[in-house]
Nucleic acid binder design. Structure first.
Lengths: 115, 115
DNA sequence: CTCCATAGATAGCATCACAAAGTATTGTGA
DNA sequence: TCACAATACTTTGTGATGCTATCTATGGAG
């Protein structure tokens, strides 16, 4: 698995985090592992990327957190808010468009008119 | 067509430019129009984005340029170098991986083991 | 007792697309 | 004739954001 260039993720991280939290609450460390496992190691994000991003999403009101203690360890469980669910829907649509556009250009073929 | 958030493109622009230049030389202004038309308006990049990016690619040796005058207007025709062709191949592979990983996470399904 | 996995935080940096402003030429419409 | 759009290129500065590096802390394995 090639190491992912850092900048590639820019602007797409929020969508990934929201998507990972969609099935149910998770704490930060678990989010990192979810991303890694569900992408077969392709998305192996450092804590310095994920934790600040979660804080940002919480400030934006897209997720909320509760502290919990499990096995003597404090952890913060994040869950999607209503706005978070809405944002995730939008982000998915934006990603689909973006991905289709980039793929079309990279393939050198014109945009598929029939979508 | 939704306005594309700026950061989404980060790290992917080089691949797009190389791909547009693959069929043959083009000048900057034409590159912008190629991107717009081949993405049905989704990729409508400002000159302040494209021209510096072309300079960057030229400094990196992935493209080369020749000045030409057409109808009294000076324009710079860019073409892929050998390194540029190689880079484009790599970038396509990287994009495919990245797109597959993001799509998998957004779809909430595990990475397809059979690729 | 040391080391690793778990769990979290953050300061500072680097990258890069973009906004905004400018130069210059050609063609068009009033 | 004169304003304006389209063509064509350039550059300065800024903002957003992911990453590196470093730090704190606990629990279990060896």
């Amino acid at each position: 698995m090639l190491p992912m260039r850092p900048e590639l993720l820019k602007g797409h991280l929020d969508a990934l985090l929201l998507a990972v939290l969609e099935p149910g609450p998770q704490h930060g460390y678990a989010v990192i592992e979810s991303l890694r496992s569900s992408s077969d190691g392709a998305l192996d994000l450092p804590t310095g990327t994920v934790y600040p991003a979660l804080h940002r999403l919480e400030r934006a009101g897209l997720i909320a957190s509760d502290w919990e203690t499990v096995g003597g360890r404090r952890r913060r469980a994040y869950r999607l808010t209503a706005s978070g669910h809405t944002a995730l829907r939008e982000q998915r649509a934006i990603w689909d468009q973006f991905a289709a556009a980039v793929t079309a250009v990279l393939r050198g073929r014109p945009w598929p008119a029939t979508v």
